[in-house]
Structures are given as C-alpha cells and as structure tokens.
Design a protein around this nucleic acid. Structure first.
Length: 87
DNA sequence: TAGTTGACCGGAA
DNA sequence: ATTCCGGCCAACT
C-alpha cells in the first residue's frame, strides 16, 4: 500500500457514515498519522474533493471549523439535514 | 531548498 | 471557564 496522504484522507472521510461527524484528529489517526490533524485540514482547505463529504469533519471542540463550499453556515445546515447534532 | 501557512490538538497560565 | 503557547504534518510560495 503506497497511497499518498491525501488519498488516504479522502478514503477515510468518504467512509464516514451519514449523520456522523468526525474530528480532524480522528481522521488523521485513521490515516495513520495521529498528529497530522493540521495536515488533514490543510488538504481539505486547499484541495477540496466533491467525492469527499468534508462537511462531516469538524473540530474536536465541537465547532465546525470551516468550509470552502459555501461557508460554515452551509456546512452546519448540511449536518443538521443529515441528522448530526452540532452543539 | 528553505520558509511560511492553516478548516488542529493538548497542555499550561 | 477562557486565553496563550508549543508541536506536529503536508501543501504552498
């Protein structure tokens, strides 16, 4: 297995169940680098992939963090629509 | 090649 | 409870 970091992140985020939210740190852990939470966020921010529901990835504090697809408002609405609680 | 940036996290003040 | 500081990783300039 020799997928790049971004490929792994894409796979992990795409595997998040609907209505479920995961933190960047958890995604990083799934990828293999538990301390790469910043790197995961960096990939989402600069290279968003429509096949990856990044809106299901939030901060550990419970805040949404950010969204490059319409702002945090659209992200929160999408999560509520799926059935995820925000805070 | 080296330095800066960022949708982070955890611990200390 | 909130605010500040350091660390860690990949991409960008």
């Amino acid at each position: 297995m020799s997928k790049t970091f971004s490929e792994k992140v894409k796979d992990v985020v795409a595997a998040i169940p609907k209505g479920q939210t995961m933190t960047y740190g958890d995604v990083a852990k799934k990828v293999g680098n538990a301390k790469a939470a910043r790197a995961v966020a960096n990939l989402m921010a600069k290279n968003y992939d429509p096949a990856v529901p990044c809106h299901r990835v939030i901060r550990k504090d419970g805040t949404l963090g950010g969204y490059n697809r319409g702002g945090v408002t659209a992200k929160r609405k999408a999560l509520v629509t799926e059935g995820a609680l925000i805070e």
